[in-house]
Amino acid sequence: MAEIILPKINALQTRPAGAGPGEPLIKINDLSLFYGASKALKNVSLHLGEKVVTAFIGPSGCGKSTLLRCLNRMNDLIDNVRIEGSVSIGGHDIYGDNVDVIELRKRVGMVFQKSNPFPKSIYENVAYGLRLHGMKDKSELDGVVEQSLRGAALWDEVKDRLHSSALGLSGGQQQRLCIARAIAIRPEIVLMDEPASALDPIATTRIEELILELKKDFTIVIVTHNMQQAARISDYTAFFYIGELIEFDTTTRIFTNPAKRQTEDYVTGRFG
């Protein structure tokens, strides 16, 4: 199987932080996923770089969310799912025999399409993951909660009501809270499954700006059905169609001059 190398970025383009040749952080190798007999992911091979934003695009049902959920093994929750091939993160096969899924999910966080804050206070939402993994000291918790809320561009809006219910926040604020909750435990990778699709345009813009900030510290993989969004915020883009990876390249290349006809047709709106 040919080694897939990260495509070189034209020197005249802005260099995405941390990208370039070198050991990719996530290596997906000949991955196939079966729901029972039906093959939802077909022999996907892909390498994702560190501290960049990679976008998965494609029409509904193409498998992009399924692939995303393979990266933190959330697909384990579904009955009848079978995996072939491998996914390795930081050099370790995450579907290997001795893998502790709990540890994996500490290192690979996730933000969902529909924001899902716990019916607890804002503070308790962010502290949930921290407490889970053993942090007890109140001042330490206070510090990390504040840092995470700042990191999610939410601190100024909620600092005076940390102990009020999270459900009282607006949709955009709730989603940023979910991001704060996810980054509180300092994962290396943050997976985002259409994080802004349920939000109004202004809230969406704030989330996008946030992602551009976050990529300085985290590796981000985002699934989006909004191509302009992918063009705006991602450094690399992977295009999927019916479970197959059709093309993977720098975002600029995919959106100005894709190599494959299918990609061109999808991106210009001729289908899907």
Binding site: F255, T256, N257
Partner: peptide, 9 residues
């Protein structure tokens, strides 16, 4: 309308 790829060009 944010054209992409060949349309953008």
């Amino acid at each position: 309308r944010a054209p992409l790829a060949s349309n953008l060009r």
